[in-house]
Design a protein around this nucleic acid. Sequence first.
DNA 1: TGCAAACCATAAC
DNA 2: GTTATGGTTTGCA
Length: 207
Amino acid sequence: MARSKQKVHSEVLIEVCCQNFEGVWFGVACNQEEIVSTSFGASEKKTLTSILASIPFDVPFQVSYEPSAFAESVLDSLKKIFVGRKPDNTFCFDYAPLPAYTQKVLKATAQIPIGYVTSYGSIAKAVGGGARAVGNIMASNRFAPIVPCHRVVKSDFTLGGYGGGLKTKVELLNREKKGFFDSMQVQVEGGFLTVFPTEYVLRNLGS
DNA sequence: TGCAAACCATAAC
DNA sequence: GTTATGGTTTGCA
């Protein structure tokens, strides 16, 4: 029986998991070895809703309460990032559904090291395009906080915005500060991105 | 400082 | 196609 020409979606069943860690809900959607989306928030419902929003209607998914080894390792990394530590693993993301420019911006954002921030305009300068467009992409970042959009601020080192709330953004940055003094350049697709010590932002908040 | 105008990719009609 | 929408930036008073 020839079935090979049929589109069999069941082969890409997406696994969705949520876990609570110290009062915060972390969620992941993944297919085998790729992250489809991640999220975190104060309630399970909100976290789950934001995860599900990034799964296309015609793709089946399954909410699992017993995460696969891969999902478990992603959740583990989410928690580590949340407390300001470096995750053990690097992951592949399912960038395919996203527009090319969005992919470029997210990949550049992913290059910002712990202890550093950059600005919307700096990313725009590195990969092309404009700061507002970068801001829009941050706002709809489906890989937070693994793609660290909390490390992107305004050019005057004030906070800008954050989907999870500015309070959360400050908390994350506070845990990530390393006491660096100098800015530096990191290589990204399309050029070099200037990053600045997290302290530049934090010392702005006091006054 | 504060305001206005320019900027720019997306998503939604 | 066209328009609306921002997690911005910059210049000018």
